[in-house]
Design a protein around this nucleic acid. Sequence first.
DNA 1: TACTGTCGGATTGTCAGACAATCCGACAGT
DNA 2: ACTGTCGGATTGTCTGACAATCCGACAGTA
Lengths: 228, 228
Amino acid sequence: MYETLQFEHSSTVERVVDELRRALFDGELAPGTPLREVALADAIGVSRSTIREALGTLVAEGLAVRQPNRGVAVNSLKAADVRDVGKARAALETAGVQAWPTARASDKDALRRAFADYTRTAESGTNSSDLTAAHLGVHRALVGLTGSERLLAMADALAAEIRLALAHVARVRRNSGEQVAAHRVLLTLLEGGDVEAAVAELRDHLTHAETSMLEAIKRPRRRKADIQ
Amino acid sequence: MYETLQFEHSSTVERVVDELRRALFDGELAPGTPLREVALADAIGVSRSTIREALGTLVAEGLAVRQPNRGVAVNSLKAADVRDVGKARAALETAGVQAWPTARASDKDALRRAFADYTRTAESGTNSSDLTAAHLGVHRALVGLTGSERLLAMADALAAEIRLALAHVARVRRNSGEQVAAHRVLLTLLEGGDVEAAVAELRDHLTHAETSMLEAIKRPRRRKADIQ
DNA sequence: TACTGTCGGATTGTCAGACAATCCGACAGT
DNA sequence: ACTGTCGGATTGTCTGACAATCCGACAGTA
């Protein structure tokens, strides 16, 4: 009984983390920007302890980096990091695709839904941030095919890094229709049971994504912070 | 110049975390044991803030769990968790094995060294904790073949959970010579370039490991804490 | 000029103490 | 057997403090 009920317990720290994450993803804080404890505490209106804890989780999530005695700053992904994230993504998503034959029906459905969502978002031509989210959702669902929460959590961490990087990069302009088509191919191959081909398609897609991200990272979007 | 120099910066929090981790791995704190902030602060001789931060990282590492307003407790892995960790390990290590043909020479060497280490440790019949560490080292090196730091970090997190579970389980007694042999087979297949067979061997090995862990988890080692 | 020593301000790391909110178990009441 | 209430224990958050560390500027020296 009451299985559907849930109650959101949000601590102050959690809300601070959410707010900081949002600011990072929305590009309000450029990579490398130092996150000063007292300044943030004053700005947000909480104590330094709370900020400190929030910064700790941000660092744990890889969205920020801490240098001992010098504070934490917004993480800025170098080319090497992008490549590293690419390898990690490839590993996780390949595992998901390879698990298709033995995947739970619910996980397969989740993937189908994520793709449908992505298609719809792309067609309705909404905000690019939403599109990114929907796109990442498909890739997340791929990992979900493994049926492992831990792998999903790892995928989420990687996705967060990607979103952070994407927020500070000149618009990655690729034909979104073409993108959707590429994913549809992948899905179709899976539905047809051709795992081998799906893996190849995935690898191809990820390689393209990585090179275009590397390309984009070279020409960072001009921001206020740059000219101060 | 000076590239080889390094200086260890250890903060109080870090040392507390290390100490707690050690206690966890050595089985001094049974799964489920609550980690009270003030009690720990008194025991270790640091302030509550410091303990709090240390507990935060422990939770982030998955070694402990936090229930809002109820504090953190030593994580206790259920059967479902073991299976989940198993899937995650399989994904990461399979990725490593599949990356063998394109792996960096240094990473391959690291694997060879890890295996040599493992062999030596097994032969010299040392402490079982060291043997576990050496064994995990081999599996870590497998993931290392991917050349991704992030995947390595994920593997480390999984290894930590495994060590935690292993610390509170009736001795997993398997012929260690047989174990070493299984790994040797894997290595030999890789050196021979037969990735397919190596993947199969790995999958087999991991399945065995998982079932024996599931088996072991059912009969937890009797501890003082149990009879208090 | 290039390098080294020193100083002050800014910031972090850690501590101590406080208090409300929350949780838990016990106990009493129905 | 279920519900209401109370007190102690514990966490979540805040405030204030201070030493350690870092950074930039400035001066001194070869």
